[in-house]
Simulated assay, not measured.
Amino acid sequence: MKEQLKEFCKTLNIEYIGIAPPGPYYEFEKIWKNKIEKGHVCGFEEMDIEKRVYPEITLPGVKSVIVCLFPYFVGHKEEANISKYTFGRDYHIIAREKLEKIAEFLVDKIEGFKYKVFSDTGPLADRYLAHQAGLGFFGINGHIITDKYGSYVFIGYILNNYPFEPDKPQDRTCYQCFTCVKKCPGCAVLGDFTIDPLRCKSYITQKKRELSERDIEILKKHKLVWGCDVCQDVCPHNKKVAETILDEFKEDLKFNIDYEELMSISNKEFIRRYRDRAYSWQGKAVITRNYEIIKNMYDEDKD
């Protein structure tokens, strides 16, 4: 059944598919509790520790976790003012569509097949699952890294009640050159395979609450008004990586959010126009705020 699953995934252009065990994830529990103790959480994560450790809570009878990677790299765009992961349609939508197709295939093949699909919105730790499924290795910056696509990959998973044989985690790490530690705009990469998300520029660009002076200084470090690619772009594992073979991430690309357009439309119209983009979920106001902080900084430099 596992081989049939992999063959079907090839028809969807999914090259990276692995199986993680169904838990409990006691190793991850220690890692997560340590992060909480240090205050290295931002609130976007699932905060119920039990749900993060015991997949059985989310899907009673779970026996394995199918994990897939979705590469999205389409090249470096100097003119971009948004992160690479947002160039195409919202990855949540694309990954979920493909995962649902996989699940439907398995429903037809396996009697009584039960499942739940997640793409960055589930209770489990996506990167931990990808590592457990043997799909990549950890970088100092906390990203999962692959040989073909580097760390430019999205992660999705399917909790299910079929006992697929788990894959083995890769016994390796990144080069540990510490370039990402040195170059991170907010000094968020701590050098021990953990990050402080509250100092991460990507998080700050998505933060709705009032920004602190530190947040504003971090925001000004480069021109992206949504997200941050620095720790990935400087990573030697991301040099000469392949571009995605997934058509969904190569179509209808948009590299810029235009300030004049933002100012000329309502939030409702912004959501209507960009509801299929990963940067739309916090609305127009957050991006406008970021834009104005960065724009003012560049204006001051010109003066």
Rank of each mutant, 00 (worst) to 15 (best):
His131Glu: 07
Glu29Tyr: 13
Leu198Val: 09
Ala188Phe: 07
Ile158Met: 01
Lys183Gly: 00
Pro197Val: 05
Glu45Asp: 09
Gln170Lys: 10
His222Gln: 07
Leu262Ile: 11
Ser64Leu: 03
Ile17Pro: 10
Phe255Ile: 11
Pro22Phe: 13
Asp299Ala: 11
Ser264His: 09
Glu45Gly: 02
Ile287Ala: 11
Asp258Tyr: 15
Lys30Tyr: 11
Arg272Glu: 15
Phe28Tyr: 15
Lys201Cys: 11
Ser264Ala: 14
Lys250Ala: 05
Asp196Glu: 12
Gly122Ala: 07
Ile287Glu: 13
Asp196Ala: 11
Gln132Trp: 06
Pro55Phe: 14
Ile31Gly: 00
Pro166Glu: 11
Cys177Ala: 03
Glu300Asp: 12
Ile294Val: 14
Ser202Gly: 06
Thr146Phe: 05
Ile204Met: 01
Glu292Tyr: 07
Gly61His: 12
Ile93Phe: 10
Gly39Glu: 07
Glu56Leu: 06
Val241His: 00
Phe44Asn: 01
Ile218Pro: 00
Lys77Cys: 03
Tyr25Asn: 04
Leu135Pro: 02
Leu106Thr: 03
Met47Ser: 06
Ile265Pro: 01
Lys114Trp: 10
Asp108Cys: 04
Phe154Thr: 01
Tyr128Leu: 08
Arg52Trp: 07
Leu253Met: 12
Phe193Leu: 06
Lys114Cys: 10
Met263Leu: 15
Glu300Cys: 05
Val286Tyr: 04
Pro166Ala: 11
Asp192Thr: 02
Arg89Gln: 08
Lys98Met: 13
Gly43His: 08
Ile102Phe: 00
Cys68Gly: 05
Phe270Met: 06
Asn267Val: 09
Ala103Ser: 14
Lys30Phe: 10
Val241Glu: 00
Lys168Gln: 11
Ile94Met: 03
Asn296Arg: 14
Gly134Arg: 04
Leu262Met: 15
Cys9Met: 04
Ile195Arg: 03
Gln132Met: 15
Lys33Gly: 00
Pro169Val: 06
Ala285Ile: 04
Glu260Arg: 12
Tyr203Glu: 03
Thr11Lys: 13
Arg272Gly: 06
Lys208Asn: 12
Pro21Ala: 12
Val53Arg: 05
Ile145Gln: 01
Pro166Asn: 02
Ala20Met: 10
Tyr175Ser: 08
Asn141Glu: 04
His143Ile: 00
